[in-house]
């Protein structure tokens, strides 16, 4: 049981996390934007998260917290 949380207002939508996730469960929003106008990242299948934190390690904006 693990959980990744995106602080959506800190996300700049660069997508580096999406490529880092070994489970391919992080992707960028296609419709919703944050207040700055970025399509932010989100976890599409929380149940598949293994808490490896690779998404967070790639994030240049410290916009991801990971719990396990």
């Amino acid at each position: 049981m693990a959980k990744m949380t995106v602080i959506t207002e800190r996300c700049k939508g660069c997508g580096l996390c999406t490529a880092a996730c070994p489970k391919k469960i992080v992707s960028l929003q296609k419709e919703k934007r944050n207040k700055k106008g970025y399509f932010y990242a989100e976890c599409t299948d929380q149940s598949a998260c293994i808490g490896c934190a690779m998404c967070a390690m790639m994030c240049p904006d410290c916009a991801i917290t990971v719990e396990k």
Partner: peptide, 26 residues
């Protein structure tokens, strides 16, 4: 659940001015 990854304390909790995807933040 325990936090396994979060912002280090010595990195002030504010957004940076760097462009999206710029690796300065890392």
């Amino acid at each position: 659940m325990a936090v396994v990854f979060e912002r280090p304390k010595s990195l002030i909790d504010i957004p940076t001015h760097y462009c999206p995807g710029c690796t300065h933040g890392i």
